[in-house]
Nucleic acid binder design. Structure first.
Length: 493
RNA sequence: CGGGGCGUAGCGCAGUCCGGUAGCGCACCUGGUUUGGGACCAGGGGGUCGCAGGUUCGAAUCCUGUCACCCCGACCA
């Protein structure tokens, strides 16, 4: 690394490149040799693990259990639900053979044409079909409902264009699949889970989000209704960060999943599915980072506090270590993750820059000067402010400071989102404003035709119809036809 | 799949127009001096120039094909 780290592309030049470079240099992930896939490195994965653990606990609080379903889906399963297959057909990886053999011409190894599968298997782009094929055997009576299952898994979508964390060919996610006796119960669960996602984004990722409903054209393939959380990145573009779908009885009908109700009548079950992915990592990076690197909210930072000793010789290091050890112990007992970096193969300046790049929320530096004065130097990553503080009571101070940083990062993101959200009343104004990015709150006549025209002419899409938005009626900014409420329109990733 | 760019050491690049047997910075290794914001000096190791053909006495360089990656679109979490 060293000096090249200084050359983080400035965001003004090209936001995408800056982001990509940041992901690589902060040691989060790198491009894999496999097309469109990425290698998530230990530091990046540690953040994902923390997200996973938190979300998993939140799911379980709502009664959800984890399970696991196969990676490969028989082609016939995927075809059962017409809209679903149409939505995913263009981006499926397909397994056609089960054996290789030595090339008769001596060029290594080739696919054995004898070993063709009778029915091709699809690498899951999502698991609705295999899961509903399984649920058929699990659900017989109203007593089996609701069925609340989640799986942590990888999925594959052969996207034409990929971008690290935001759209990789293979990605990690969780997908929840629930089955219910009534439509209301299923739709309530759909809403409940989008709210879990919104809570998670706000409290842990320090990411303000708009909760809303997708327009018909943006809906999940096979869903009756799709709820979404939309976050704004620093360049004003939207990122769909989590979705929850009300599937009605579509999959129950496709896979013939029925239950006997209290009146001894057979009924199709009602379904929801919901998911968030490693894209959340992308959101985290793009929402908070600055030109010094990552800025991680303390609630998700793998290392919350790093301590860098500054010493000239082993005696000094020993003295510093002795002085600082009680602080480390105290921080740990408060549940704070601490790294004491006494490695002697990097100089302090290098470490400072490196931990900033990695987004560590709080840094302490301790040297001979501090030993004399009984102080430490503290720097907070969100503001880059440094202050020298007495070592006495430093752990308690950091404990509350971490919360303050968490809140500050959220407030900053929220302020930016508000600042870049505009009520727009004419299409001309819209066309002008959209160039600089941001969320446009506009009246829309509710037709796919108008939506398509806006997209065609401005590259912006309807991100969602916000749940808690202004419901004052008006007239569509494009057609002048009546509109029930304002919707969020933006360019997106 | 369209438009643009790029492929040379682990990373970032120069060399390609005008053919002559490979170079710079960072990283790495050894020794020393250093250590409060990305250390310095000296020495050292590492590349069949994306791949396959062709032209030539000779190809990183010219020609043909092909593959990969990046950016901008279309598609999507």
């Amino acid at each position: 690394m060293a000096k090249e780290l200084k050359n983080l592309t400035k965001r003004s030049e090209n936001y995408s490149q800056w982001y990509n470079e940041l992901v690589v240099k902060a040691d989060l992930a790198e491009q894999s040799a496999v097309r469109g896939c990425m290698v998530i490195k230990p530091y990046g994965y540690a953040i994902w693990e923390k997200m996973q653990r938190t979300l998993d606990a939140m799911f379980k609080e709502t009664g959800v259990q984890n399970a696991y379903f196969p990676l490969l889906i028989p082609k016939s399963y995927l075809c059962r639900e017409a809209e679903h297959v149409e939505g995913f057909a263009k981006e499926c990886a397909v397994v056609t053979h089960y054996r290789l053999k030595n090339d008769p011409e001596g060029n290594g190894v080739v696919v054995d044409p004898e070993a063709r599968l009778e029915e091709e298997l699809i690498v899951r782009p999502t698991s609705e079909t295999i899961i509903w094929g399984t649920y058929k055997n699990w659900i017989h009576s109203y007593r089996d409902l609701p069925l609340l299952i989640n799986q942590w898994a990888n999925v594959m979508r052969w996207e034409m264009r990929t971008r690290m964390f935001l759209r990789t060919a293979e990605f990690l996610w969780q997908e929840g699949h629930t089955a219910h006796a009534t439509a209301k119960e299923a739709e309530d669960r759909t809403v409940q889970m989008i709210n879990v996602y919104a809570d998670f984004a706000r409290k842990y990722m320090a990411l303000p989000v708009v909760v809303g409903v997708k327009s018909e054209t943006e809906r999940f393939a096979g869903a009756l209704n799709t709820y979404t959380i939309e976050a704004m990145m620093q360049d004003g573009k939207a990122l769909q960060s989590g979705t929850s779908h009300f599937l009605g009885q579509n999959f129950a009908k496709a896979f013939d999943v029925t239950f006997i109700n209290k009146e001894n009548q057979a009924e199709y079950v009602w379904a929801s599915s919901w998911g968030v992915s490693t894209r959340l990592m992308g959101a985290l990076i793009m929402a908070h980072s600055d030109d010094n690197g990552l800025v991680l909210p303390p609630h998700l930072a793998p290392i919350q506090v790093v301590i860098v000793p500054i010493y000239k010789n082993d005696e000094q290091l020993a003295a510093i270590s002795e002085k600082i050890q009680p602080v480390i112990n105290e921080l740990k007992s408060l549940g704070i993750s601490v790294k004491y970096d006494d490695a002697d193969n990097r100089r302090p300046g290098f470490k400072f820059a490196d931990y900033e790049l990695k987004g560590v929320p709080v840094r302490l530096a301790v040297g001979a000067r501090d030993l004399e004065n009984g102080t430490v130097e503290l720097m907070r990553r969100d503001t880059l402010e440094k202050e020298t503080l007495p070592i006495e009571g430093i752990a308690a101070h950091i404990n509350s400071l971490l919360e303050e940083i968490q809140q500050n990062i959220y407030d900053k993101a929220l302020a930016r989102q508000k600042e870049m959200t505009y009520e727009v009343n004419s299409y001309d104004e819209f066309k002008e404003k959209i160039e600089a990015g941001g969320f446009m709150l506009c009246h829309w006549d509710g037709t796919p035709e108008t939506e398509a025209r806006i997209k065609e002419e401005t590259k912006a899409t309807i991100r969602c119809i916000p749940l808690d938005g202004d419901t004052t009626p008006g007239v569509c900014m494009v057609t002048g036809k009546p509109s029930k409420q304002r919707v969020v329109i933006a360019r997106s990733y």
